[in-house]
Amino acid sequence: MIPLAYYLAISAILFTLGALGVLIRRNPLIIFMSVELMLNAANLAFVAFARAYDVLAGQIFVFFVIAVAAAEVAVGLALIVVIFRTKHSIDVDLMNSLKG
């Protein structure tokens, strides 16, 4: 018997670490990975609540979150590739103009 609170604590810690990664890292690829970490933390909370209240809707929603995350990663990585082509670097400090 593991209390629901433990899963929620893990979820909160992972989400905080993801947010911290977005704030302190300057490599956009790692910022992106931190966003994925936050999505995963939210998914974990969803599945834990679905288990606690014995409903399937939480798991279904996690399935859709995973699908949206896949689409988001594909588009985001394509944007990074395009930025690398125009600026020859992907440091976030260089991305300070709307028009490349």
């Binding site: 994925e36 995963n40 599945v47 679905a50 288990r51 995973i66 990585l77």
Partner: peptide, 23 residues
């Protein structure tokens, strides 16, 4: 452990597999 085998498999194939390979 939370009794969600389908989500666990989707996590492994889509996240750990497809998304991280793309990264």
């Amino acid at each position: 452990m939370l009794g969600a085998p389908f989500i666990a498999m989707a996590q492994v194939t889509v996240y750990a597999g497809a998304i991280m390979v793309l990264f």
